[in-house]
């Protein structure tokens, strides 16, 4: 996949950082304002997709390679499961028990550092969703749509 003209390349190299920052804001404030893990993850993926569209697929793959994206994907899911499992160990023995909030380790309501394990879950889900969507678009864009004459009946 080829890139676009030089005007698009210059502007998008500036805008994609802003989109990435916006995505991180949506993820981190997920327990106070609408949004959360999934919506923020989609926005982060879209910043990488902008990179791919403006510069071409090979450049985007050098930036964040296929195997690295796949590993980030698995890592996000495993960390989310680890958050659930910690609830099992810290006393009350239930999966996804909000151990940070119930043990009053941090925060009063309506601050950024509050609501226990919910911001942690949001961050890990954001990583996973962003990596997954970018992986899907990276792989789908590597298909070549010409048909070979020998395959047709």
């Amino acid at each position: 996949m080829k890139g676009m003209t030089i005007i698009v390349k210059n502007i998008s190299s500036f805008v994609k950082v802003l989109i990435f920052l916006f995505g991180i804001y949506i993820i981190l404030f997920g327990h106070l304002t609408p949004g959360g893990g999934f919506a923020g993850g989609v926005i982060i993926a879209s910043s990488y997709v902008l990179l791919m569209l403006a510069y071409g697929r090979e450049f985007a793959e050098e930036n964040l390679s296929l195997s690295m994206t796949s590993k980030l994907d698995c890592l996000g899911a495993l960390l989310f499961a680890a958050v659930g499992l910690f609830g099992l160990f810290y006393g009350a023995a239930s999966f996804f028990w909000n151990f940070i909030h119930q043990k009053s380790w941090w925060g009063e309501p309506f601050n950024l550092l509050s609501a226990g394990t919910i911001p942690l879950s949001n961050i890990f889900i954001g990583i996973k969703v962003g990596a997954s969507l970018f992986l899907v678009i990276l792989i789908l864009s590597s298909f070549r749509l010409e048909t070979s004459a020998s395959e047709k009946e």
């Binding site: 590993k71 698995c74 899911a77 499961a81 659930g84 099992l88 023995a93 999966f95």
Partner: peptide
């Protein structure tokens, strides 16, 4: 605990591609 039946295959499914 009952969620073990869902947690074990899910964690395995995400460990295997690594």
């Amino acid at each position: 605990p009952l969620p073990v039946f869902v947690a074990i295959p899910l964690v395995t499914a995400f460990l295997l591609p690594l």
